[in-house]
């Protein structure tokens, strides 16, 4: 389970001063549920997810992931989290197998368990044909499968996906979408950020709309449609976000 309480993050920029990238965000994401964080570029999605993965430290507030506080026990949080984003690349000079095993060892798996789990994952993701190929020689789809295997190796209870399909072709993106669904079936807690409406409609049990670092609306798709009296998610998004849109020319 993920629970954020007044999560905030302020960055300091020499030219622009203090920038509140995430502002007092609170939500709960339960096991077996996919929580979709929907927002435009720069809305604060990545910063929120990076704080949940303890890559960044909150300025104010906190979050509890699998019973561990992200500020007080970041190592324990990371041991329970699988983090996948467009920015989480692979080590080019390691093979697919070495990459997955490296993260298994970093997660403290013993060698017999690591081998057993790696074999299971490679078979499940159909990776055996390229498991000993270097990552810089893999196709985009193979790389994504390796990334998925890397996040799964320690069997985390929480999966964090930060725009995982950005820049991918349809078939590779589909692999990721199927994988996210599978995580829900396995009763994992899944949080997923995107700005693609169709992905939210396909996957999310709960949607949080974020803009300028603030969580402006939250609920199931049906609840949001009911509340804003509109069926199309894009229209709902524009209605919610519109008043908070900043004019780049201003």
């Amino acid at each position: 389970m993920i629970e954020t309480r007044g999560l905030s993050k302020v960055f300091h920029d020499k030219k622009r001063g203090a920038i509140r990238a995430v502002d007092n965000v609170s939500f709960v994401c339960k096991p077996g549920q996919i929580y979709g964080l929907l927002g435009a570029n720069g809305a604060g999605k990545t910063t929120t997810l990076r704080m949940l993965a303890t890559i960044l430290e909150p300025t104010d507030g906190t979050a509890v992931v699998c019973g561990h506080d992200v500020v007080d026990e970041p190592d324990k949080v990371r041991a329970n989290v699988g983090f996948l984003s467009a920015a989480t690349a692979l080590y080019p000079r390691l093979t697919s197998r070495e990459m997955v095993e490296y993260f298994g060892r970093l997660n403290g798996l013993d060698e017999p368990t690591l081998k057993k789990r790696a074999d299971e994952i490679f078979s499940r993701l159909d990776m055996n044909s390229f498991r000993d190929r270097r990552c810089d020689k893999l196709s985009t789809g193979m790389k994504q499968k390796t990334s998925i295997a890397r996040t799964l190796i320690h069997d985390p209870q929480v999966m964090i996906f930060d725009e995982p399909t950005i820049g991918l072709d349809i078939m590779t993106a589909r692999t990721i979408i199927d994988f996210i669904r599978e995580c829900r079936q396995r009763r994992k807690t899944v949080i997923f950020s995107t700005h693609v409406m169709s992905e939210v409609e396909k996957l999310c049990d709960v949607v949080g709309i974020i803009q300028s670092g603030k969580l402006l609306a939250e609920g199931s798709l049906a609840e949001l449609r009911d509340h804003y009296r509109q069926h199309d998610l894009e229209e709902i998004f524009v209605t919610v976000v519109g008043p908070y849109q900043t004019n780049p020319e201003a």
Partner: peptide, 11 residues
């Protein structure tokens, strides 16, 4: 290479 975020997400 974009691997810094990958490694920082490990325990």
């Amino acid at each position: 290479r974009g691997t810094i975020e990958t490694i920082l997400s490990s325990p």
